[in-house]
């Protein structure tokens, strides 16, 4: 666990060093960003699911690209790398070939979403107390 200033400590699965630089101790703004992430991710993820169902690989790559950017703003730098690899494969593989990696991506996305839900609640409580 690392600290943002000396007060709020992000979950260890997030890149807290980067989040510290990004928010510069502004936990109120971090709360806003985490809330926006939870609001936006399902919308963008729907595009991923639609593209995969339709086997539209260029659209799938673009949709994953957008989610990748979103994951970065809440400190999931490792998940960004996974998205990047998947995005690259969209231009050379078929939907069938990507099935296993797609399932892995869904699992990682759901885990990430769950962590951010908890982090958002913690940030909200933290900010209410300050």
């Amino acid at each position: 666990m690392q600290k943002i200033r000396t007060t709020f400590v992000f979950d260890e699965s997030l890149n807290s060093t980067f989040l510290g630089e990004l928010f510069e101790g502004d936990t109120i703004y971090a709360e806003t960003v985490f809330e926006d992430f939870l609001k936006d991710l399902p919308i963008y993820w729907q595009r991923v699911e639609t593209a995969y169902t339709n086997k539209n690989l260029p659209a799938l790559g673009t949709a994953v690209h957008t989610c990748k950017t979103l994951f970065g703003y809440v400190g999931f730098t490792d998940l960004q790398e996974l998205c990047q690899q998947f995005e690259n494969k969209c231009s050379v593989n078929t939907a069938e070939e990507l099935r296993v990696e797609y399932i892995l991506l869904i699992q990682r996305k759901e885990r990430a979403q769950h962590i951010i839900e908890k982090e958002y609640d913690r940030l909200r409580l933290f900010n209410e107390g300050t």
């Binding site: 703004y29 960003v33 926006d36 992430f37 936006d40 957008t66 950017t69 979103l70 703003y73």
Partner: peptide, 11 residues
């Protein structure tokens, strides 16, 4: 096209 990214930039 990503609102969070635009909000950061504006800020």
């Amino acid at each position: 096209d990503i609102q969070i990214a635009a909000d950061f930039l504006r800020k």
